[in-house]
Amino acid sequence: MTDIFNQVFSGLSIASILLLISLGLAIIYGTVGVINLAHGEFVMLGAYAVWFLEDHFGLGLFPCIVLAFFAVGTLGWVVERLIIRRLYGRVLDTILATWGLGVILQQAIRLSAGAELRYVQMPPGLSAAVHFAGVDVSAYRLFVLALTAILLAVTYVLIFRTRFGMRLRGVVQNPEIARCFGVNTSQIYALTFAYGAGLAGIAGALVSPLKSVSPDMGTGYVVDAFMVVVVGGVQSLLGTVASAGIIGELSGGLAYLSNDTIAKAIVFLGVVVLIRFRPQGLFALRVRRG
C-alpha cells in the first residue's frame, strides 16, 4: 500500500513538472499557432538562471524562480518580436526557426557556462521529508506540486477572468474580427509567447535542484511535453492537466516496473496508437493554415 502511494506520488511529481512545461507549449500553440521546439531550451535556461544566480549572487531558490520567470519570459518576448512574427502562417517553418534557435541557445550556454553538469542546492527548509498520509514524502516535491497548482489557477484566472484573457480568447477564435474590435493582436501574440516561455523558465527553475543541470537537458523534456500536448489537445486547460497526469503517472509507473527508457518507449507507442484510433476525441487537429 505504501509502495503504491509512493509510486502515485512520484508520478504526480513528474506530472506537475510536465504540466508546467506543456502548459506553456499548449498556450503558445493554441494562441499563436507556433510549435516551439526551443521550449526545452527555455526550460534549460530557467535551470541555468537559478544556478547562475545562486552561484554568483548567493540568491535562494524562491527569488530565483521569480527572476527565472521574468528572464525567460523577456527572452520569449524578444524571440517573438525578432523571429516568430515573421513566420505567422508558415507553421512548418516556425518549427525550423525555433529548432535553430534551440541549437543557438544550447551552444551559447555550452560556450559561456561550460558543458559540464551543474548542481543546484535544495532550499534547506524543503530538503526534509514530510510525514503525510502514513508515508514520508519529500517536502520539495510537495512544494513543486503546490506551486504548479497555484500557477495553473493563475493561468486559469488570466485566461478566463481578465481583460487580457478575453482579448486572447477572441484572438484564438478569430484574429481578424478581434482586430476589427480594436484588439492589438500582435501584442497579444508577443505577451502570450512571453508568458508560455516564462512558465517554461519556472519549470526549469523547479527541476534544477532535482536533476543535474546541463545544456542539453531540454530535449527530453520537450519531447515529453509534446506527448502531453498531443494527447491532451491545445483547446482546453483541463485536457492538458488530465493528459499531464496520465503521462506522468504512466511514465512513473512503467519506470518503476522496468526503467526510464522502456517507460518512454511504451508511452510513445501508446500515444501513436491513440492517435490512430481516437484522433479527434483526444486532441484538436486544428492546424492553422496561412
Binding site: 525550423l96 529548432w99 535553430g100 534557435l101 541549437v103 543557438i104
Partner: peptide, 8 residues
C-alpha cells in the same frame, strides 16, 4: 552557433 543562425 553559425549553423543555427544560418538556419534561421
Amino acid at each position: 552557433l553559425i549553423m543555427g543562425a544560418l538556419f534561421i
